[in-house]
Simulated scan of single mutants.
Amino acid sequence: MNRFAVPMSLFAVLLVACERPPPAEPVAPAAAATPAQAQAQAADAVSTAPATGSDADWQGYGAAQLGIDVEQLRTVWGSDLQGDAAADGACYYLSPAAHSEGGPFFMVEGGRFLRYDVRGGDTAAPGGGRIGMDLAQLQALYPQAEPLQPHKYVEGGKVLRVPATDGSQGALVFELGADGKATTWRVGLPPQVDYVEGCG
């Protein structure tokens, strides 16, 4: 046996071992986000999400908040409100010229903005209800709704009244046709929100 055979084979093994890359170091799991970091990440996600909301809320429509006087309403809305004031503080409506025929329509009584009506289109009510939704859909969205009432003028129609969920005095009222689907909705302060005839 060649006396160099063993050392040479050993040398070959050592050479191969040296050519192997070192084992990868274990990667530490990512640290859990702190509550503050999680809140910041959620805020970032909201800020980058497409806007899908509505100007309608329990206390008004955009900057037009229920209870303000008509001069304030005209100031916050701009110069395109149309409609004639009624004498002696009687009820009347103002409507934005730039909006569709579906509304919103702003009810003023006693010189104050007290209700708005939506009579068409796809504008979402506070809580997500829309014209065209059926009773089951609305009741699922508004479990706090009051018992269903018959409509005063529409045969087979119903009225669904929903108290505000934000602690305000406002209420949301859906009118449903005989087919059980919402035809209009309105938000306002009592008793004006419950005027079935509007300003009639």
Rank of each mutant, 00 (worst) to 15 (best):
C199M: 11
W77S: 13
P22K: 04
D80R: 13
Q144P: 13
P7A: 10
A30L: 15
L189T: 08
S95W: 02
G53Q: 14
A40M: 12
A63N: 13
I131P: 01
D179S: 12
E197K: 01
A40D: 13
W58T: 03
P190L: 03
F106P: 01
C199F: 07
A45W: 09
T184P: 00
G170M: 05
T184G: 08
H151P: 10
S54D: 10
Y116L: 05
P21F: 07
G157A: 11
P23E: 05
A145K: 08
L172F: 05
A49H: 08
L148M: 15
G200F: 07
V187D: 04
A24R: 12
L176E: 13
V16P: 06
V13C: 11
G120D: 10
D88Y: 04
G132E: 13
E155W: 06
D122A: 14
R186P: 02
H99M: 08
A136Y: 11
T123L: 11
L114F: 00
A49S: 09
F113P: 00
L172R: 02
Q39C: 07
E175L: 00
L14D: 00
L148K: 09
E19F: 15
G83W: 04
G157M: 04
Y153D: 15
L141S: 10
D194F: 08
P150A: 11
S47E: 15
G62H: 10
E101C: 09
A64Y: 09
S79N: 14
Q41R: 13
C18M: 13
L66I: 12
F105V: 04
D57Q: 11
G53P: 01
W77Y: 14
T165A: 14
A38T: 04
V193L: 04
Y195M: 15
V154T: 10
A32H: 07
A97G: 10
L81P: 07
A86G: 13
D84Y: 09
L138H: 06
V6W: 03
L135E: 12
G60M: 03
L148A: 06
T165I: 04
A140C: 09
R115Y: 03
M8R: 14
C91F: 06
Y142T: 02
Q37V: 11
G111W: 01
P22F: 03
F106I: 05
